[in-house]
């Protein structure tokens, strides 16, 4: 009996995990505004395409995600390498703590800090504060992924390089860094998705000029049923999917 019950249960659980998103995607092609299927249509995609504010928010999100991913990947990779050489419990502990800190706390703490700093500098909340916030919370993700890769690395390789006359920098640049490439790529991908997706922290530290796609989505979702949100969701879903598949391919190639 158990042999049949368990697979059935597993199928149900996978349905629980995947059906909600699939249904959402399917109904984004519904011509009706309501959740009754009336026919295939791209009307909500058209509405999405013609929405200027949405385009601007998407652009903001992409810009923020790209810039903060590049910065966080560099800072996180260098940090992981430094900690691999010799661990600093305070630094690695703080970074891991930042990973489990509820987003809302990270958000309000950053907000309070920016507000406090603005008393001394003539600045305002905006794209730069969002990017700083995103880099901060992405570093820990990058560190975690690159560290996992470094743990499988053989320290003797660098010692061999030094022994053969390489400088420390050359040993890092020519021996360790190439070995870390797949890990760094995976870390960057993770940083990108985390940044592109973030709402809670972003909404707290964003200024008037820096509304992001998740912020718009949130506002639309709160206002009530809106098939455009389904269409945007589908695009995000497919877009991130392509990004993940492409990066897997690149890593294998």
């Amino acid at each position: 009996m158990k042999q049949r019950l368990l697979p059935l249960y597993v199928v149900c659980l996978y349905a629980f995990l995947h059906l909600p998103l699939m249904i959402l995607c399917a109904f984004s092609f519904n011509s009706s505004r309501f959740t009754v299927w009336e026919g295939f249509s791209l009307v909500w995609y058209q509405a999405m395409w013609n929405d200027g504010a949405l385009a601007e928010a998407t652009w903001n999100s992409l810009l923020i995600a790209v810039v903060s991913t590049v910065l966080a990947t560099i800072v996180g990779t260098l940090g992981a390498y430094g900690l691999w050489k010799r661990n600093s419990k305070i630094l690695s502990g703080s970074l891991y703590l930042s990973l489990v800190t509820p987003e809302i706390i990270t958000g309000i703490a950053l907000l309070a800090t920016f507000q406090w700093a603005f008393r001394y500098f003539q600045l305002q909340l905006g794209m730069h504060t969002v990017i700083l916030a995103h880099v901060t919370f992405s570093i820990a993700y990058v560190l975690l992924v690159v560290m996992a890769r470094l743990r499988t690395a053989d320290p003797a390789l660098e010692e061999a390089a030094l022994d053969l006359g390489a400088t420390e920098w050359q040993a890092f640049r020519l021996v360790t860094l190439p070995m870390l490439k797949p890990g760094i790529a995976a870390a960057a991908l993770l940083a990108f998705t985390v940044s592109f997706d973030d709402y809670v922290i972003t909404s707290l530290v964003a200024g008037v000029d820096s509304e992001t796609l998740p912020m718009m989505l949130y506002a639309m979702a709160r206002r009530g049923a809106n098939p455009v949100v389904s269409a945007i969701s589908t695009v995000i879903f497919v877009g991130l999917g392509i990004l993940i598949v492409a990066s897997e391919r690149l890593q294998k190639a």
Partner: peptide, 29 residues
């Protein structure tokens, strides 16, 4: 397959449940 939905936006995943559960949502319809 377990991790897959996790790579999608958290907001989108939450919205999917609003879509299913609201008064005019799929379950009620």
């Amino acid at each position: 397959l377990v991790m897959l939905p996790f790579w999608t936006s958290f907001l989108v995943r939450t919205y999917a449940w609003m879509f299913l559960l609201r008064d005019t949502g799929l379950v009620n319809s």
